[in-house]
Design a protein around this nucleic acid. Structure first.
Length: 289
DNA sequence: TTCAATGTTTAGAC
DNA sequence: GGTCTAAACATTGA
């Protein structure tokens, strides 16, 4: 469900509240979620202390002091909830029917008890997963997964972006941005928003983009995702940040979810919705060319 | 009842 | 070979 800004938000906040926590034996209620033999998973995790929580692409990485890193993908409807023994609930993910009062619930597929509280991995649609990688080879493993560069780091320069675009000349703009092997972390919402920012139709062929348009797309991508992180993510379908407050990015979305509404550039355009690469795609036919 | 949902993978068509 | 679409995964709610 979450894209880069939402995963970044959860990861940062879990890092704050869970670092130094010692894990007890995890409980796996839905075995298919854990992509490792359950016994070895429990053996590796139990007793480990969380050193830090990080993000790469849309993955949450919990690095343990014992050499293992827990790798979590939330996919469409995954959710991470930290319930400390004392203090506030920490939530990141999709809403729980009936609220947060009953934990675990029917969507709690993996439960991580610790010395300071419990971490719940919930997932309504069961697309998400939990994996395990040796921290030592995590970098190599991530490379093997083929993820493209992180769009918000300093080394992701306009020149890098333009060089990437030259490798995908005949493809369409939006599906290429969402290709995790091209850039990591861009999903459906922010691809639409970046195209709006750059005034480019999502279905344009990359080879038709001027240099200026390529640069605007670069600026748009960085802008919408940085803005979202600043506001702790988008709360569509009631996505929640790690402190349980809804993200505030929703109110800054300019095309996503605004089908048939007026373009916020006040140019008289009406936001149109099409299907592109199997995903709902929103744009203004007036200002996006 | 039908459709679409912030993700990813795969099979098949062109 | 490259690109694209639809379908699949599973569930819910509009």
């Amino acid at each position: 469900m979450p894209e880069l800004p939402e995963v970044e938000t959860i990861s940062r906040e879990l890092n704050q509240v869970m670092s130094g926590t010692r894990l007890l034996q995890p409980e796996v209620k839905l075995p298919k979620i854990v992509k490792v033999p359950i016994c070895s998973f429990q053996r590796a995790v139990t007793g480990g202390v969380i050193k830090k929580v990080q993000r790469r692409a849309k993955l949450v990485l919990l690095e343990l002091s014992n050499g293992w890193t827990i790798v979590i993908h939330l996919k469409m409807s995954g959710q991470l909830i930290w319930r400390p023994n004392h203090g506030r609930l920490t939530v990141g993910g999709h809403p729980i029917p009936g609220g947060l009062s009953h934990l675990p619930n029917k969507y709690s597929h993996v439960i991580f008890p610790t010395n300071r509280g419990t971490l719940f991995f919930n997932d309504q649609r069961q697309f998400g997963y939990v994996k395990l990688q040796p921290t030592k080879t995590l970098g190599k493993w991530l490379e093997e997964q083929g993820y493209g560069p992180e769009p918000l780091t300093d080394d992701f320069t306009p020149a890098v972006w333009k060089s990437i675009l030259r490798q995908h000349r005949v493809k369409r703009v939006k599906p290429t941005m969402m290709d995790q092997t091209v850039i990591a972390g861009v999903g459906n919402i922010y691809a639409d928003e970046a195209c709006f920012f750059a005034k480019i139709k999502p279905a344009r062929r990359i080879k038709t983009l001027s240099l200026e348009e390529r640069h605007n797309l670069y600026l748009g991508l960085r802008h919408v995702m940085n803005l979202s992180i600043k506001h702790r993510g988008t709360t569509a379908d009631a996505y929640r940040t790690a402190t349980g407050q809804p993200g505030k990015m929703q109110q800054y979305l300019r095309v996503y979810g605004r089908v048939n509404q007026s373009c916020l550039r006040r140019d008289g355009g009406i936001i149109k919705k099409i299907v592109l690469a199997g995903r709902g795609t929103h744009y203004c036919p007036r200002c996006q060319r």
